[in-house]
Amino acid sequence: MIKTSPLSGIYRNHPVNIFEVSGWHIAGNFGNTEREQENLKKSSVLVDWSHIGKISLSRGDASAAAEKILKGSSKIEPLSSIADSKMAILRLTKNDYLILCNPGMEKGMLEKIDSKITTVTDQSGSNGCLVLGGPRRDEVLERSTAVDLRRDRVVAGSVIQSSIHTINMTLYRTNNFDIIMHPRNLTESLYDALMDVGIGVGLVPAGIETIPVSFEKDK
């Protein structure tokens, strides 16, 4: 059985080329990879990464559990992150973590985590994930949230928990794109709202060919 992106309804309205990644059907491109990559260079793109692994650790000894997954996780401050090419561990509060990882890695990761010391929830299916890339992405964000996302204040690697278009979200910032996690049932609304305000600054939907999954903050 296929795992479906929460943007499946949007895919129906575009000439999307679907890629199958770890059992997910996800947009590889929206019909024209070249145009999407051009937009990534010159304006802005919105990419569906809903298929990435998302695991939350909360209460108990969440930092010890996170440390086992990636060394140094227990040392980072709340609202910051640690990452390698395959995963990013976001520390949301003193005792809450969110692990983002390459699609398909979550099963092995769940086996590694001792669920007796912390509450572990696989949120891969319950959370949507959209990625904003391109030099004009700040112009989309400034029309979308009242949160201060100035780049010298919210630097690469930072984590913000707030709202975009009234939708609760967790934002993880890298140098070249912003990753927005949010409840799956609101993904299509969030996509519509971002595209609506982004239309004036050249925002186009793009696929994972344009921004492949990668978590390092320097990406």
Binding site: G9, T166, N185, A193
Partner: peptide, 12 residues
Amino acid sequence: RAPHLSPIRRTP
């Protein structure tokens, strides 16, 4: 833009 203030929740 009012539509952004009342997002729609959709089931899977």
